[in-house]
Computed example of a mutant assay.
Amino acid sequence: MSLGWMGKNRVFVEKLVKFGNAYANSYKKEYPYNTSFQFSAAQIQVLEYILENEDKNQNMLEIANRLGISKSAFSKNVKKMVDKGLLEKYHTSENKKNIIIKATQAGKEVYEQYAKYAYEKSFKEIFSLLDEIPEQYVEKMEEILDIAAKATSEKAKQEKEVTLIRIEE
């Protein structure tokens, strides 16, 4: 069967799918990433976002939404990282239901070790290639990735809606 509808973009779509599959396969698996802790890509993303926005005191739902993950997935990752001593939970004085997450000193140190490892292992080469591309083209790639993420997210929402309809029948 011909996949002609993709035209000249077939190789690009293939590479995007290959990356998505590789990332999905490793997203929840825990690795040491050259540190003394085991954590997953999902957990490091949570830690990274918390460190990057620590002055904003965002609650768990705000952070989960920003990362594009469910509140329950976010909560599971936070719990694992609290248990490892990398994150701490706080209540705000005005609302005990409002939980703020902060990185511990150990969390900050582990992130620094991870960042050095990740940079040398893959991002150094990626950034070097991005430096060769004019900024407007990099922005177009960012748009493409946003569209792909949105399409994937919409598909997941549609599947949930179908599941809900089937349960009500």
Rank of each mutant, 00 (worst) to 15 (best):
51 L>E: 09
43 Q>L: 03
58 Q>L: 10
55 D>C: 08
57 N>M: 13
10 R>I: 00
38 Q>C: 15
56 K>Q: 03
56 K>W: 07
38 Q>N: 14
52 E>V: 04
17 V>R: 00
42 A>S: 05
59 N>C: 10
17 V>H: 03
12 F>N: 14
17 V>W: 08
23 Y>F: 13
22 A>D: 15
55 D>T: 11
11 V>F: 07
55 D>M: 01
60 M>W: 03
41 A>K: 01
51 L>G: 04
29 K>M: 08
34 N>S: 15
16 L>V: 01
24 A>L: 11
56 K>A: 06
53 N>K: 13
10 R>E: 09
21 N>H: 03
50 I>N: 10
35 T>N: 01
47 L>C: 10
60 M>F: 06
28 K>G: 05
52 E>L: 10
55 D>W: 06
52 E>I: 05
14 E>V: 04
12 F>R: 04
59 N>L: 09
11 V>N: 12
24 A>P: 05
43 Q>F: 10
54 E>P: 05
9 N>V: 15
45 Q>Y: 05
18 K>V: 11
59 N>E: 12
39 F>P: 00
56 K>Y: 03
9 N>P: 02
48 E>I: 02
14 E>A: 14
40 S>P: 04
28 K>I: 03
34 N>E: 09
14 E>F: 08
51 L>A: 04
37 F>T: 07
26 S>M: 11
34 N>R: 08
38 Q>S: 15
36 S>H: 14
16 L>R: 08
56 K>L: 09
53 N>C: 10
28 K>E: 13
28 K>F: 10
27 Y>C: 04
17 V>T: 07
48 E>V: 00
60 M>T: 15
16 L>P: 09
50 I>G: 04
48 E>N: 15
39 F>A: 03
35 T>Q: 02
44 I>L: 05
57 N>V: 01
61 L>M: 14
52 E>R: 13
55 D>Y: 10
19 F>P: 02
58 Q>G: 13
20 G>Y: 11
15 K>N: 11
15 K>Q: 04
29 K>S: 02
19 F>T: 08
23 Y>D: 08
13 V>P: 03
40 S>R: 09
